[in-house]
Design a protein around this nucleic acid. Sequence first.
RNA 1: GGGUGAUUAGCUCAGUUGGCUAGAGCGCUUCCUUUACACGGAAGAGGUCGGGGGUUCGAGCCCCUCAUCACCCACCA
Length: 1071
Amino acid sequence: MKFASSYEPNQYEADIYGAWEAAGIFDPKITTKPVDDDGDGIDDRIEDGLENNTFETVRDNEIEQFDETEAIAESEGVRSAAAREVAPAAHGDGPAGRAPKIGDSSVSKTFSIVMPPPNANGNLHIGHGLTVALEDSLTRYYRLRGASSWYIPGADHAGFETWVVYERNLEAQGHTRFEFDRDELYARVWNFVAEQRGNMELQLRALGASCSWDDLTFTLDENVIDRVYTTFEKMWNDGLIYRGEKLVNFCPKHQTAFADIEVEHKDEKGTLWDIEYKLSDEPENNTFETVRDNGSGMSEEPRDDGRDEASRESVISSSLVVSTTRPETLFGDAAVAVNPNDERYKDLIGKHVKLPLTNRTIPIIADEHADPEYGTGAVKITPAHDHDDFEVGERHNLPRLQVISEDGHMINVPEEYNGLTTTECRKKVLKDLKDQGLLVGEKKIVHSVAHCYKCGTVLEPMLKKQWFVDVEKLAKTAIEHLENNEIKFHPASKKKVLINYLKGLKDWNISRQIPWGIAIPMFHQVGVEETSENVHSRPSATNEERGSEVSPVTTAVGAEQAESLLSASRRRPADDLWSTGRDERVENESFLTSNRLATDEPDWIFDRRTNLKEIEKAGVKYVRDEDTFDTWFSSSHWPIVCTNWTEENFNPYYPLNVMETGADILFAWVARMLMMGLYVTGEVPFKEVYLHGLVLDAHGQKMSKSKGNVINPMDLVTKYGSDAFRLGILRGRSAGMNQAFSEQSVISGRNLCNKLWNISRLIQSLIDENADGKAETIIESEGVRSAAAREVAPAAHGDGPAGRAPKIDNSSAYTTDYMGEDWICRELNNCLSQLEDDMKNYRFSEAVETLYQTIWDKYADWFLESQKIYKNIPLLKQTLETLLIALHPFAPFVTEAIWQNLSWTNGFIATAKWPARLKYDPISAEEFENIRNIVSEVRGTLQALPGTNNAKKYGLLFNNDSLIQDNQMLIKVLTKVPTINNLDGAPRGLRLALANHELYLDVPEKVVTEYKDALTERILAVGRELDALNLRMSNPNYVERAPAHLVKETQDQIAEKEQLISRLKTQQSLI
RNA sequence: GGGUGAUUAGCUCAGUUGGCUAGAGCGCUUCCUUUACACGGAAGAGGUCGGGGGUUCGAGCCCCUCAUCACCCACCA
């Protein structure tokens, strides 16, 4: 006996995965690596795969099968059951005469999907578990459907994440990063990663991911770097890359900048201080009043006229009070801004104030940024240390004075403050201001503060020269393609969200000051100091503003210079902008009309030789930029690099069929892949996007280490098996939603696997016992398989060494001899149709639910129970194969384990052919519902009777009912009653409430009497249902306006209920 | 401030273009150790679909409104 009494996943999973991998069944059938034996310059495998052989062969078979089976179907009057069997996607559900489609338009010839690369040296977490369950189910499903399926695995160097871990190690050993240069550090981290690597690959295998391992892409692979450099160069030439001096989000701990999207904002308590700035020149209007703190915190809202002295404390003075949470930055102030519409300060605009603690004077300017409602309405402007102030500075041409260094110390400040940390300096500034009587107010506030998402350090807005991507055109193009519905989103709402994001997208800082990453391939001319004169900073304006804006104003670039640079940009040739390799879908025109300023930096050159610190070109020496790329810059090429897309060759796997990833990186990743895909290839990189939500704990809480509620997927796999985990995590989950997950759902998955195992065990044992069972038609075939195997093998395991499926006429592989057999065929066909529909629409949870129900409630509970009597061996084989294949995408291991243990199957189920529709007699199938009703009624009544284990006590009596007569044995087995007989005289016992069958439970009168209450209750319940139906029919509008079939249905139901009530009443009167 | 989603059984969720007597899993109750499975079988209880309006013959579904919760983006001197 091959089948143990329960399924033990640990005994099978590793071996099965090993066998799959050894057999190479995860490789796509056609490859993107060129093979050109016939020397015609075209990849032979593409020629084969797409034009003649691979797929057409399959289709020819289908057409032949269709011709044969259609005739049979028609002669039997079974509408399209047989036709459906060869037209899996057609579902046969149109109007009666509609011709089924040949082939399957809903399944393309190739299916490609890339894995969001897990951290190369990390472990998989629950989110990866979900990702694999989703992606692998899709891959396996489309592989079974006959598509050349390519699931491309990846590994992420995880730039910043890994660097943080490594730097922590380094520090633990008493070193700092500054002891080494970038190349040394890179090599060290490389080795560090190499040592740790491999875990996650093993874990992906344990989860059953059917990915093509030979094609694993590491984010630092040479081809990735090559492609990234190619894109960067193209962007540089297209003027999409510029060197800008801007305020960037800088982590003083990790000494690197971040993109806006990487910043984590947290609400924190802080203090808002009011500081008095003295006017430096005597104001003409002496009546100006300084709004002062009223002693109880922040100042009250001043009155508009500002002259009602009785209402508040105010003084007439020659000063202005500003509010700030960062007093230490006052040394970097360039102005004080007031709102132009603020009557209180109108007269002060253009005047100057003297900065406290120093001798500088700064102007008072008018800017909308100052909110009259907030604080005193006057705000200090520190362009070098605040994002908003930076923009104000841009608008007013203010100098940017940096007073905080990258490591968080004060610079360019009076001697006594110089070198202090920002915290120390803040203390001292506050004390000194207080001593001078200039600190005039203090208020506790809650405000949002930017933090490093890794170490939690408060980020310092830092003025830095960095490489930026001008995203305007990229975003605009992406929006166009989105609005053109070229990508279908699941959930659909995310498309709108993405468009909104792209509309407001600001230029993208791609420079990172960490060594672990792809080096930026830019070199700076030796001896030419990079000053602000040759740095082109762009205002961080919105896209709308930017469209018309010509000249970004910096402190140093004068109007004259800007003009000359602008004309340089107009001269720039744009022939190769947006070139796409093979089709020109993106117009260059819009780009040419752009007014953007050229990035005409003669002192910077592009060069790929980033392994060299210094290079020479045309006799000029250049030195390497030491920064690396933001990882999202390279990750945005993921669909391109994973599929080996090139400008030269047609690639059947690009665009990807679907991009599956977490909804939380819609902006960071999906948006960027879309922009980059369009820019590089001219095509959207994927046709559909499926976004999954967060996996929460059982109580709907976010998993986190600090809460201690983290679920490790591998623990569950070890405990319950990979399939159980996959089934469990897919259940009750829908696209884009954060949803709870608990071990319980995995247990229920485990139970299903065990159920299926035991179903197979029963069938195998029936086969073993019935070697001489039903007459079986042996179909002659190529002799690849045993006769017994062939006869029932429409689900052809087509990928033997010969590479083609044995041709099998499955129309004669089995017959349906009794109505339960027709019924299960019908149910299985429905299951397949629903499954196909669910998969097409990415409704994984529903797909799994459908399978549960079919396997458990229908196949096991009704069909298999009935087969304990009928034993239709060919049909048992056929239907089991159907179920196994249908479940395989979700539970690959147990289905394969069973497949390998069954006596008649060959090959791998993983490469089997998707099951054909089963042939059956629909009238007979429908009739089986009568049996189910009878059995249910008997069971229900028995349970309602007083006493226990009634089934063993009372027999059944029927009155000349042919259906019951013919199915005595079956009814007896299903209801477990001891006897079933034709009534031999006057009716006796308890008449069952069946509308069309006269059936009695042979119980003593005493029991009948005790049952009376239950009966009365039942009559009332049915009566209520009847009333509701009658009410509906009594509404003339309903009869008039509702569709006829609904009205008819209601009438039928009324008739049925009336009949039922009359039976029940008869029964009652007998008591 | 802008946006998105959610609110259906004790819990976690389905409910696809409005047409059933609103479903599933888990949990719960009762019965059953029958040789595929106790990781099982059978039966059952449990919901005025967040509140209030409206449209319709008919609303969990469409419209308006209110409430609560969650998330995202921007801003917070």
